[in-house]
C-alpha cells in the first residue's frame, strides 16, 4: 500500500495514503484563544472550516518549523455522529510517498495509552519508522465537544 513519509523533528513517520484527501502547502490558520498547544487553528479549505493540529506539538511538544516542505495533510474521517468530516495535521519534510507491503508493518506488543495513534513500525535498514494510525488519531479528538485530546478507553485499541 501507498504510504506518506514525513518528519517531525528528526524522526521519520509514516501514514497510509488511503485516508488522505489532499496535501496542502502551509497556509495561514485562524488561531483560537485558549485552545490546546497542539491545535494549530482553523483552515479555510475551499470554504469549509477544517481544524488543523500540529502533530509535532502533539508528539514532541515543539511546533513544526515553517519550511517550504512543511505542509498540511488533510484527512477524511467519520466523526462521532457518523458523518464524514475532515481534519488536518501539520508535518515537516513532506516530500515522499512510497509503497510498502502489508507484511513490512510490525506491530509492537505494547502500546501506550497516551499515544494510542502509534501503530506499527517499518524497518528501513537499522532505522525504525513509526506508523501513525489515522483512524485512531481521528478518534482521539472530539472536535464537537470542548476540544481536548481524548484518551481512548483501552478496549477500543483492540480492534
Amino acid at each position: 500500500m501507498l504510504v506518506l513519509v514525513f518528519f517531525l523533528g528528526d524522526d521519520k513517520y509514516m501514514v497510509e495514503c488511503e485516508k488522505i484527501r489532499e496535501i496542502s502547502p502551509m497556509v495561514t490558520l485562524k488561531k483560537v484563544p485558549h485552545s490546546p498547544d497542539f491545535f494549530a487553528g482553523f483552515f479555510n479549505y475551499r470554504g469549509a472550516v477544517v481544524p488543523v493540529i500540529d502533530l509535532r506539538q502533539l508528539i514532541q511538544e515543539s511546533a513544526c518549523e515553517m519550511r517550504l516542505s512543511t505542509r498540511i495533510i488533510l484527512i477524511d474521517y467519520i466523526n462521532r455522529d457518523n458523518l464524514p468530516d475532515m481534519f488536518g495535521f501539520i508535518a515537516e519534510r513532506v516530500t515522499e510517498a512510497t509503497k510498502k507491503s502489508k507484511e513490512a508493518f510490525i506491530l509492537p506488543s505494547v502500546n501506550f495509552q497516551e499515544t494510542p495513534y502509534f501503530s506499527g513500525f517499518v524497518m528501513e535498514g537499522e532505522k525504525m519508522i513509526q506508523c501513525i494510525d489515522l483512524n485512531v488519531l481521528s478518534r482521539s479528538f472530539d472536535f464537537q465537544q470542548p476540544f481536548e485530546f481524548y484518551h481512548l478507553p483501552d478496549d477500543s485499541l483492540c480492534d
Binding site: 502547502p25 497556509v27 517550504l68
Partner: peptide
C-alpha cells in the same frame, strides 16, 4: 531535498491561503 528545507518566503503563506480558500 535541501531546496525544500529553506524557510518559507514572506508571502508564501498568504498566497497559498488565498489559493486554498477558493473553490476548486
Amino acid at each position: 531535498r535541501d531546496l525544500l528545507e529553506r524557510p518559507m518566503p514572506e508571502n508564501y503563506r498568504q498566497e497559498w491561503t488565498k489559493v486554498m480558500a477558493t473553490q476548486k
